[in-house]
């Protein structure tokens, strides 16, 4: 099989979930109760809106992730030819890593790696 057939897997997965959902929404018995479709909050009616501006401390981590994830993508092609690339590839990657390592060190020292 060639890579176009990935679409097949996509379709099978969609059919699997969709079929089960349709089955499950038609066949099982239903009962109605106004409390049932309340969002669960330990049995207490929700106070205030759920979708507020939510303060999560991972903004910095997302930025760091972007940097390092792009780096990982760069690393893959290098990793493939490392065996044949010889000393030149090694030296180049050392330089690359030094820069990145300094970046990480900078973030570390700047206390960006602490979740607030």
């Amino acid at each position: 099989m060639n890579s176009e057939s990935l679409i097949l897997f996509f379709i099978v997965a969609v059919v699997l979930v969709g079929g089960a959902l349709i089955f499950s929404s038609l066949v099982p018995p239903k009962s109605f109760n106004p409390q049932k479709s309340e969002p669960y909050e330990c049995g207490i009616p929700t106070q205030g809106k759920t979708w507020l501006q939510f303060n999560v401390g991972y903004y910095l981590f997302a930025i760091l992730f972007l940097i390092f994830d792009v780096e990982t993508v760069f690393l893959f092609p290098w990793a493939v030819i490392m065996k044949t690339g010889g000393i030149a590839a090694f030296v180049e990657i050392i330089i690359f890593f030094t820069i990145l390592g300094l970046g990480l060190l900078y973030a570390w020292k700047k206390r960006a790696l602490i979740w607030e």
Binding site: E41, C42, Q47, L52, F54, N55, V56, G57
Partner: peptide, 30 residues
């Protein structure tokens, strides 16, 4: 909206309260 409190009820039906205690928590992020 930023000043609005994010209130979560922990309990009375919650796995961590070991009983029916309700803790009303105001959150800011985590």
């Amino acid at each position: 909206i930023q000043q609005e409190e994010y209130i979560v009820n922990m309990g009375p039906q919650h796995p961590s309260t070991h009983g029916v205690l309700r803790l009303k928590i105001s959150l800011k992020g985590e």
